[in-house]
Amino acid sequence: MREITYREALREALIEEMKRDERVFILGEDVAIYGGAYKVTDGLYKMFGEDRVKDTPISEAAIAGLATGAALTGMRPIAEIMYIDFSTQATDQMVNQAAKMRYMFGGKSKVPMVLRTQGGAGRGIAAHHSQSLEAWYVHMPGLYVVMPATPYDAKGLLKSSIRDDNPIVFIEHKMLYGMKGEVPEEEYLIPLGKGEIKREGEDVTIIAYSRMLHVALEAAEALEKEGVSCEVIDPRTLKPLDMDLIADSVRKTNKAVVVSEGYRYCGMAAEIVTRIIEECFDDLDAPVKRITTPDVPIPMSPVLEEEAIPSAKKVIQAVQEIL
């Protein structure tokens, strides 16, 4: 099968969906002529015209709000927020308008929009360009949150997100754009709410998403050499969460480690750990571990940045502690 990058996979998904449905359009900062800060929308404005691939002023709240209003009136917008760190400016529009309109107005409306953004550390660009803020969006009734880790998942999940009738926060990872992986030429979709076992194993379940999937897989590879068999699960969508897949695995291995690049307090890892305890308490042979970024802003210095985010070494250590 052909291999393409995560970036190319996302771009293909956008092109296919824009060709398929003329209600789909893109807006955001530097998405048109520049092609997106991470080049995901490169050349699209030439294919679809300036109105459907719209460069906006630096106005994150209005970008998200405009997408909400357009979705509410029959379009299917994709709003790009260049860094998830900037999405805080758009949060009111997402959590108070897009997320709640359907419910608040008696189920008579829908807001089919995707807020595409990217997060994560790794480039030494410090506290305003490196965060993992997914926990803020999963917290909110009415939003779905999708975080693909591979080119294949990125394409299939972005296409499904664009076709879904709910407002979706689609979070890419800046360190994955250049990663290559198998993506078929023919069309496919990945349903929201379906995780995947990325590596089968017997002794411990590691749950990880976005870039942390690759950290978990690296740890699993190293642990294999020590005779420890890890099952690695990527939920792929944080909401809806494929808890059945996670619980089935934990019932088999009786041990779990959750890896998230988000901050520790009330983060996604805390949610998954809680769900495991709620649903699998009697199956657990050891405390559930979580590896997260500590309660600290992401620093610029490469040494400190690396120390801040979860690593394979920390995952290995956590697994060893509960074996």
Partner: peptide, 11 residues
């Protein structure tokens, strides 16, 4: 907070 929503309807 509805001002951008109206603007989106306009778009």
């Amino acid at each position: 907070s509805n001002i951008p929503v109206a603007t989106g309807a306009g778009y």
